[in-house]
Each structure stands twice: as C-alpha cells, then as structure tokens.
C-alpha cells in the first residue's frame, strides 16, 4: 500500500515537473509548479515531516506561487515561441540528454550510498514542538539571521521597483 502510494506520487511529481519545464505558456507552467509543490508536501507527510509539509503549502503554494502568478499576469506574458531553427532544436536535445545523464549519475551515487538501517522515528517526530525546540536552541543564530534576510528581501524590491530620475 505504501509502495503503491509512493509510486503514484512519484509519477505525478515527475509529470508535473516536466510540465513546468516544457509547457510554453508561463501561467500553465506556474499552475503545474503549484501541483508539484503540493505533491511534494504530501511526500513530506509520508516522511513524517508534518510541520514542514504545512509550511510548504502555506509558504510555497500560498505565498511564493501567488507572487509568481501576480508578476506573470502583471507583465501580461503570452506563450514562449518554441524554437524551430536547427541550432536551437539540436541544443535543446543535447540539454535533455545532458540532464538524463545527470539524473543517471545522481541515481548511481544514491544507489552506492552507505545509508544503513532506518532509525525508528521518535515520539512526536516532525511535529511543531520538536522542530521549534531545535529551531530555537541549536539553530537560534541562523534563525535570527533569517529574519535579517527577510527584512532585506522586503526593502530590496521596494528600492528596485522605484522609478528613477523623477
């Protein structure tokens, strides 16, 4: 049952990721990316990361993807033309083959990794309490720096989006 669920999820994930990369219309690419991120949240639940799965849906599919769709619609983008002249077509094919080779090498790396036996998850694994305890003790400095980073990310776009010379 668990194996079947994983295989279905993996097939859907790969399909939707390919749709993001290959669909010429940016809005449909973005919707496929929403599906990809949502399916990944389900995979995170299978791995016991409940808190991160909820954050994935709120932050990624909720906030980041709305930002992407907003910009795509603000700029009123149409379909990207699919290249037909020969160098572009050949280069796209070569890029696809290089990607397949990269995936093959990464899979071989994974297959040879000394992973050992899976540890039984402790009580409350991946819940808000356990993640928060780790976040506010061992990782409190990176956490504060993340706050600074987000502040920069708030001010930066405001500066970038200003019209200069007026």
């Amino acid at each position: 049952m668990g194996t079947f669920a994983f295989l279905v999820l993996a097939a859907l994930l790969i399909g939707s990721a390919l749709a993001v990369v290959l669909h010429p219309n940016p809005v449909k690419s973005a919707m496929a990316l929403v599906a990809t991120l949502f399916l990944l949240a389900i995979v995170f639940v299978l791995l016991g990361a409940h808190m991160i799965a909820v954050l994935q849906i709120i932050v990624y599919t909720g906030a980041i993807m709305v930002l992407f769709l907003f910009v795509i619609m603000l700029l009123n983008l149409g379909d990207e033309e699919v290249p037909t002249e020969w160098p572009r077509v050949v280069l796209r094919g070569l890029a696809g083959m290089a990607g397949a080779l990269m995936a093959l090498q990464l899979v071989r790396l994974v297959a040879g990794a000394p992973l050992g036996r899976m540890v039984d998850a402790p009580e409350g694994y991946g819940g808000a309490l356990m993640v928060a305890r780790s976040l506010f003790t061992d990782y409190v400095l990176p956490f504060e720096l993340t706050g600074l980073l987000l502040l920069v990310a708030v001010i930066g776009p405001v500066v970038l989006a200003q019209r200069r010379g007026r």
Partner: peptide, 30 residues
Amino acid sequence: MVPISWYLTLSAVLFAIGAVGVVIRRNVIV
C-alpha cells in the same frame, strides 16, 4: 515503509528536470 533510497532517487530526477529547465527555457520567470 518505502526505502529512503527511493525518495533520494525521486529527488535526483526532479533536480535534473529543474536543471534542464534552466538551460532550455528563454523566459526568465520560467
């Protein structure tokens, strides 16, 4: 429970798809 190497394999395939996307697309947002 599905072995962890299956998840790592899925992750490797998704990473390669993303890398190919960066190379073949011409739209900055995509």
